[in-house]
């Protein structure tokens, strides 16, 4: 595979990013902005999940709990020590990453559904712990302090500021995943996913790489948790439930498990879809939106288990797009041979 230098593909991606960044300027409607914030947030969480679930193949349903740990870490630091959420981002990353890595490390001998079951158990353990923990507000949860707009406290009146924070988070996570995917670490993780016997035979310790993946994955979703707490300004233990974790797993499944772009595309499809179904159908028959949602999911899993990216990799569309960009590269003078 040839490594592409800066070319029309990058320009295309930057243009797309620019369009996204201009949305709040063009569309003043708060509802639309809210949906975009939700998309960015879900995409970030799904990207975080896919470090462990997609790249390493350890399907976790405990990521809502890891997100919740991040949200609680930031909130408790803010309420009790008045620490800026910006500072609690790295703290939450390292703290939650380490905790999850240590807690899950004995469970890595389990494979497939058995590992998944353990992660569900962990999420309920945390849910119950926080429901009964006085210091963390018990089941009522914690309301973040209200007050004047304050950048240092990540407190804004307008949605637009949150929009940009979420967008930055998503872009940053995507870049991190791209870098991991192409690095030695990425090769190690993917080899462990494919076959642990082979991993051992070529010198990769499955345990070590699963631990690294957990640290990064849990740390990243803890950062999503910091955003969640400061955006919604209210957290309770329910955010840790396994049913919430599914929200973070689905975009990756729809978009294509194991692909870096998959969770991103999945989130851009699933979030607006569920919002639309909710608005259009729940008033007709309550719960109808969830039925339609479930049917779509079943259809994807049955007919396109590799997700959208799995289809795209072997599609004519990819060839066409690829040809189009190569052509553009030549016309714009980004061609390798001309550069060299």
């Amino acid at each position: 595979m040839m490594k592409k230098r800066f070319g029309s593909r990058h320009i295309g991606a930057l243009l797309l990013l620019l369009i996204l960044a201009l949305i709040p300027v063009i569309i003043r409607n708060t509802y639309i902005q809210t949906i975009f914030i939700l998309i960015f947030y879900t995409a970030s969480a799904s990207l975080a999940w896919s470090v462990l679930g997609g790249l390493t193949g350890q399907l976790s349903l405990g990521h809502a709990a890891f997100m919740g740990l991040g949200a609680y870490t930031s909130t408790l630091l803010l309420v009790n020590a008045n620490l800026s959420p910006w500072l609690s981002i790295p703290i939450a990353f390292v703290f939650v990453g380490l905790i999850c890595m240590l807690l899950l490390s004995p469970c890595f001998v389990l494979h497939g559904p058995y590992f998944t079951l353990v992660t569900i158990a962990f999420s309920y353990a945390f849910l119950n712990l926080f429901t009964n923990w006085d210091y963390a507000g018990k089941g009522q949860g914690i309301v973040l302090p209200f007050g004047a707009e304050d950048f240092a406290l990540m407190r804004f009146k307008s949605k637009t500021s949150y929009f940009y924070i979420a967008l930055c988070m998503m872009v940053l996570f995507y870049i991190v995943l791209r870098l991991i995917d192409r690095s030695k670490l990425g090769y190690g993780l993917k080899t462990v996913r494919e076959d642990e016997g082979t991993a051992n035979a070529i010198g990769i310790s499955p345990l070590k790489y699963k631990m690294i993946a957990t640290f990064i994955s849990a740390g990243m979703i803890a950062v999503c948790g910091v955003f969640y707490a400061n955006y919604f300004r209210f957290i309770d233990p329910e955010i840790m439930a396994e049913s919430q974790a599914i929200e973070y797993v689905l975009p990756a499944i729809i978009g294509g498990i194991g692909s870096v772009t998959g969770p991103l595309i999945g989130a851009f499809i699933i979030v607006p879809l569920s919002q639309y179904l909710n608005a259009a159908l729940s008033s007709v028959v309550s719960g109808a939106n969830l039925v339609v949602y479930a049917v779509i999911l079943i259809a994807v899993v049955m007919f396109q288990p590799t997700g959208i990216m799995g289809w795209y990799q072997n599609s004519k569309l990819k060839k066409k797009l690829s040809g189009f960009f190569d052509n553009l590269d030549r016309k714009l003078g980004f061609d390798k041979s001309q550069n060299a």
Binding site: R182, K184, Y187, K190, G197, T198, I202, G203
Partner: peptide, 28 residues
């Protein structure tokens, strides 16, 4: 045979080169 199914032939072999006795640091 235990090929790494979702990785190309090239990626399969690259994985071996990255780890093993050479322990090359850069993917390139």
């Amino acid at each position: 045979m235990k090929p790494l199914k979702h990785m190309t032939v090239m990626e399969n072999v690259t994985s071996g080169a990255l780890f093993g006795r050479r322990n090359i640091k850069s993917a390139k």
